[in-house]
């Protein structure tokens, strides 16, 4: 990837992240931290590609760990966030 294109992506993504969170009420801080924790679970995709290209047993072993941890980050992050937000939903009905 072209170096400058990457820097532009970095910059725009950083502004996006900053803007997205700047209007969050305190009440949603924990779910949001949990939700952003889920989003970086996309590291799973990187782990899959790393494992897919692995050749030696060492590379395979480390790649396996990467996918294992990435999958746990994504799955755990989703469940925990969903459970927290479900409570907010239930309460609005009252």
């Amino acid at each position: 990837m072209d170096g400058f294109v990457a820097i532009y992506i970095f910059m725009l993504a950083a502004f996006t992240g900053y803007e997205v969170i700047s209007r969050v009420p305190v009440i949603l801080h924990t779910p949001l931290m949990s939700g952003s924790n889920f989003v970086h679970g996309v590291v799973l995709v990187g782990g899959m590609i790393a494992l897919g290209q692995a050749e030696t047993p060492l590379e395979q072993a480390i790649g396996f760990v990467a996918v294992l941890l990435g999958a746990a980050n994504a799955a755990g992050g989703y469940v925990v966030t969903e459970r927290m937000l479900a409570m907010f939903k239930a309460k609005e009905k009252n």
Partner: peptide, 11 residues
């Protein structure tokens, strides 16, 4: 990965 990671990093 870059976008998701950096957005979370900034947030």
């Amino acid at each position: 990965l870059i976008i998701a990671g950096i957005v979370v990093g900034a947030a």
